[in-house]
Design a protein around this nucleic acid. Structure first.
Lengths: 154, 154
DNA sequence: TAATATATGTTATGTTATAACATTGTAATG
DNA sequence: CATTACAATGTTATAACATAACATATATTA
């Protein structure tokens, strides 16, 4: 699997999917939340909160404030539409929301492209590790940093 | 494996081990670096940089500044004596430095006790996932948050 | 000893995130 | 319809986390 960025149609589909999920679950996908989601998914690399803030301010032609952005992000994360990459304080869109609540990531340090890598065998292995330690998982952060194929060949 | 805190003898051994490694590798384990390491390992839960700062200031009876602490932390992380938990912006001591450069963690959200869980099968699984994606790993963050046995029974 | 490298001190500032409270919009209920 | 309640957003301020830049000190070695 390559780490190329998403196509326009993939982006559209992703946005449409979120709209549908919100509609059917009666989640308030307000204008700001939608704007923030679109900014995040259209960015093909992880984006920072204050970068979103700048973009939102530009779109709406008036300054926005951090809480506005962080609240929207919270909403999007709570509902599985967006993930936070703790290792780089950045946010990425989820391209299969509802498939699972946890996502694992490969993050290229050179080109910053990221890739979800949530295969079941990995999930199982983490689950077994937790069980082995009598531990009940609430959430998992797995972020693998390194170099993607393209960047490691250069 | 329980998540109880380390015994005094384990702490002493841990500190002594670091001293030995530094001596044999000619790493400058200065007074401040040693103080910061001891503060981190003696704390049986993950500790934050500014908590370390307070403790250092108290020990030395004079105010220290953030760069002093962050530099010491950098040194300790570079040499594998300490790890950062990105999901909670906190630091923990490593009780088997040099065994491997990566560590995986279970972190109890209730009592904050943490547990290293670096078994090979998990490491292999992560490694395979990377290979499958043509990805070359430089570093991995795996932090499993949830509840330990004691806290999930209460 | 002079030159160099390593570590620390100090000031300031950059970056990331949230608290607290006011205001607005909207839906539900009497 | 007015009232209440709730959800969302606006706004100001500040908390929490981290580093840049430059000065000073300490140790190493040519």
């Amino acid at each position: 699997m390559s780490m190329k960025s998403k196509s326009t149609s993939e982006l559209k589909a992703s946005i449409h999917r979120v709209e549908e999920i919100c509609k059917s679950n009666k989640l308030g996908l307000t204008e700001i939340r939608k704007q923030v989601f679109e900014i995040i998914v259209k960015n093909n690399i992880p984006i920072k909160a204050y970068e979103i803030l700048d973009k939102i301010s530009n779109i709406n032609n008036k300054p926005s404030h951090p809480p506005t952005v962080y609240r929207a992000i919270d909403f999007l994360i709570e509902n599985g539409f967006v993930h936070k990459l703790n290792s780089i304080n950045s946010f990425v869109g989820c391209f299969h929301p509802n498939a699972h609540k946890e996502c694992y990531f490969l993050i290229c340090k050179k080109c910053n492209i990221y890739q979800e890598c949530c295969d079941d065998s990995l999930k199982d292995r983490i689950s077994k590790t937790a069980i082995h330690n009598n531990f009940v998982i609430s959430n998992t952060t797995l972020e693998i940093e390194g170099h993607c194929l393209d960047c490691s060949q250069k």
